[in-house]
Simulated assay, not measured.
Amino acid sequence: MAIRAPYRSLRGISVAAALLAIGAAGCSDVTDAVDSAKDGAQKVARQRSVFSLDVGDCYNPNGKAEGTAYAIEIVPCDEAHEGQVVGEFAIDEGKEYPGDDGVSTIADDRCPVEAQKYSPDTWALPKGVALFYYTPTKESWATGDRAVSCTYTAEKGTFSGSLETAKSLKPEQITYLEGSNAVYEALWANQPEKDTVEGDLAGYKAQAEAVAAALDAHVDGLDGVEGAEVGKLRATLTKAAGNWKKAANAADADAFYIAYDPAFTDIDPSKSVAARKELGLATTVPADEAEVWAS
């Protein structure tokens, strides 16, 4: 109950502010004051506890996007908003609170997976949108809170429209996206902590093995997808898979580097633009991905 108290207080303050705006207005400003009061009342009416968020909800945070929150403003998705809930799951980690870092690690691992179920094509996301999440705090955990809400939130400004695209995709688009997403997930999820191959050859070889396996699966999936550009991409990815396998079996760091360079180059996202266009998918490489392959 203590956790919900600030939420109730917040609503009360908002209502009072809206009513005071009317009382303080002069006669010539009555229309503006009424409009302002209506806006304030609407904002209050749209408040919802963060404990009751649902997948698909579009919202505006009350304050900063990051930090402790008790309530947010739920808005229609066709209105400008700062975020949308795109996935949720419950933490199953026993009775003890995993700690702030532990909860964040779980959310970091699970939210990208949940978000891709809702918005499989990250290239189609509005510019400046990033993955955030609402997680239990130590206090809310003690009351039984285990829910994590995964959201795409604008780091600056707002966006309009729902980010749900999974239901509108064609089978061949889904096949492509599932395979492509798995390749890059294998790459980044298995990134060794050491920043040099010499420092962790075994780790880099394990990463290469994971990427090669994901590429093999992606290539197999594309075998049933028609299109000249898709065929060209499939050939490029087949070559890439071969080089990743060479890297995975490298005898030493030098051999790894020789295989890794063409392997990494051939999964440059820009090489998939033509095939994406042919499939009717977004064709602008996200800035953060383009930066990685440009460096």
Rank of each mutant, 00 (worst) to 15 (best):
I3F: 08
R11N: 06
I13S: 13
A16S: 08
A17V: 04
C27P: 07
D32S: 12
D32N: 14
V34P: 00
D35L: 12
S36D: 12
K38P: 00
D39C: 04
Q42T: 14
V44K: 04
A45T: 08
R46Q: 13
Q47K: 07
S52E: 14
D54M: 10
C58G: 01
N60H: 09
N60F: 09
N60P: 05
P61R: 13
G63V: 14
A65D: 13
P76N: 13
C77D: 01
E79N: 08
E79W: 09
A80T: 08
H81W: 10
G83E: 07
G83S: 13
G83R: 07
V85W: 12
V85L: 02
A90D: 14
A90V: 09
D92T: 15
G94A: 06
Y97E: 00
P98L: 06
D100C: 04
D100T: 14
G102P: 03
V103G: 03
S104A: 15
D109M: 06
C111T: 03
C111N: 07
P112Y: 04
V113A: 08
W123I: 11
A124F: 11
P126M: 05
P126F: 11
L131T: 03
Y133K: 11
T135G: 14
T135S: 12
K138Y: 03
E139I: 01
W141C: 05
G144L: 04
D145H: 02
S149H: 11
Y152F: 11
T153P: 00
T153Q: 12
T153Y: 11
T153A: 09
E155K: 06
F159E: 00
F159L: 01
L163S: 05
L163I: 07
P171M: 03
Q173T: 00
Y176A: 01
L177N: 00
E178H: 06
G179Y: 04
P192E: 12
P192I: 12
E193A: 15
K194T: 14
D195R: 10
D195P: 00
T196F: 07
E198L: 08
A202F: 10
A202M: 08
G203N: 09
Y204E: 06
V219H: 04
V219E: 01
G221Q: 03
L222Q: 03
D223K: 15
R234S: 15
A235P: 02
L237A: 09
T238C: 05
A241P: 03
A241C: 11
K245F: 06
A248H: 02
A248S: 13
A251Y: 08
A251F: 03
A251V: 15
D252W: 03
D252S: 05
D252H: 02
D254P: 01
A255R: 03
A255E: 11
F256V: 14
Y257A: 15
Y260T: 01
P262N: 12
F264K: 07
D266M: 15
I267T: 10
D268K: 10
S270Q: 10
S270T: 15
K271C: 01
K271Y: 08
K271N: 14
V273F: 08
A282F: 09
A282C: 06
T283L: 04
P286A: 10
E291F: 13
V292L: 09
S295R: 10
